[in-house]
Simulated scan of single mutants.
Amino acid sequence: MKKNVTIRIAFTVLSVVTGTLSLHAQKTPGELSKLILEKDSIFWTSYNKCDTALNAQFFSEDVEFYHDKGGITYGRHNLVMSLQNNLCSNPNFRIRREAVPNTLKVYPLEKNGVIYGAVMTGEHYFYITQNGKPESREGHASFTHLWLLKDGAWKMHRIISYDHHPAASR
């Protein structure tokens, strides 16, 4: 009897997990957009706080980051180390990213009716706090992120950050 209960519980758990993974792969464009925007928000909150451990969880192992001013960074480890050693290394200098209102868009990628990825585009401002002075808006840029669903998890695989310029120039 105890063995049957254990088997039933295991089957129920397996069914829930399988169903959940299936739901992730079958999201509607609206549900997908909400999901990616939520992940984007958490990602940038961790970026703004220099929480590189949390930040790393959003990148695929083979992430590629293309920056029009800083070049290419290959791999999660290298990208996280770049953040730690550059933007997050000086306590007297902080950069904060904020999305430009009404510019974020999410486009589903699908095959045979199954959503397997998303392209997110938008613009953002960058604010700098330096040596205890008040924060100032310094930069503006555009970005494109390729999110892919792999093994039940949404991860950024390609990041393109471009058109960097002073915030006041436009």
Rank of each mutant, 00 (worst) to 15 (best):
P91E: 12
P91V: 08
T73W: 04
D151V: 00
K49M: 05
R8G: 07
A99P: 13
W44Y: 15
S33N: 08
E38C: 04
L54R: 07
T20I: 09
T28P: 06
V100C: 08
F126D: 12
A53D: 13
H140Q: 06
N92H: 14
R76D: 05
L87V: 11
G122F: 04
L35G: 00
A167Q: 10
I159W: 02
H140T: 00
E31C: 01
L149E: 00
P101S: 11
P108L: 03
D62F: 03
N85P: 10
Y162K: 07
R158C: 01
F93T: 14
A56G: 05
L37R: 12
Y47K: 05
M81G: 07
D151G: 02
T129K: 10
N131R: 10
V100S: 07
N86M: 13
Y127I: 05
V13K: 08
L32R: 01
A10L: 15
D51T: 00
G75K: 03
I9N: 04
G113V: 04
F93I: 15
R76L: 04
S136Q: 14
T12W: 12
M1W: 09
K150H: 12
I115Q: 07
Y127R: 10
S60D: 08
G152E: 00
I7A: 13
G139R: 05
N102L: 11
A118H: 09
S82T: 12
W154N: 03
I159G: 03
P134F: 01
I42E: 13
L35Y: 04
Q26I: 01
H67S: 11
A10R: 12
T52W: 00
T103N: 10
A153S: 05
P108Q: 06
S136F: 08
Y66N: 09
L149S: 00
H145S: 00
F11M: 14
S33C: 05
G19R: 05
I128S: 08
Y116V: 02
F58K: 02
A167V: 08
V17K: 12
E98S: 14
N78P: 02
T12R: 09
A99N: 15
K34V: 12
D51Y: 01
P134R: 05
R137Y: 00
G71C: 08
E138M: 07
T121W: 05
A10T: 11
S82F: 13
V80D: 09
S15I: 10
S33E: 15
L35W: 02
H124E: 14
K3Q: 13
V100E: 11
Q130M: 10
L104N: 11
N131K: 13
Q84W: 06
Y107S: 09
Y74H: 14
H124D: 12
Q84G: 04
V13R: 10
V114I: 15
I42S: 09
H67L: 06
A118N: 11
Y125S: 09
A167N: 10
T129S: 10
L83R: 13
W154F: 03
R94N: 14
G70M: 14
Y47A: 06
V106M: 04
L14H: 01
Y162V: 06
L87Q: 13
A25E: 09
K3E: 14
N112E: 15
V16K: 08
T103K: 11
V16W: 10
L79S: 09
C88V: 05
N131C: 04
V106C: 03
T18G: 14
E135T: 06
N55P: 01
Y125K: 12
F143M: 02
Y107T: 10
A168M: 13
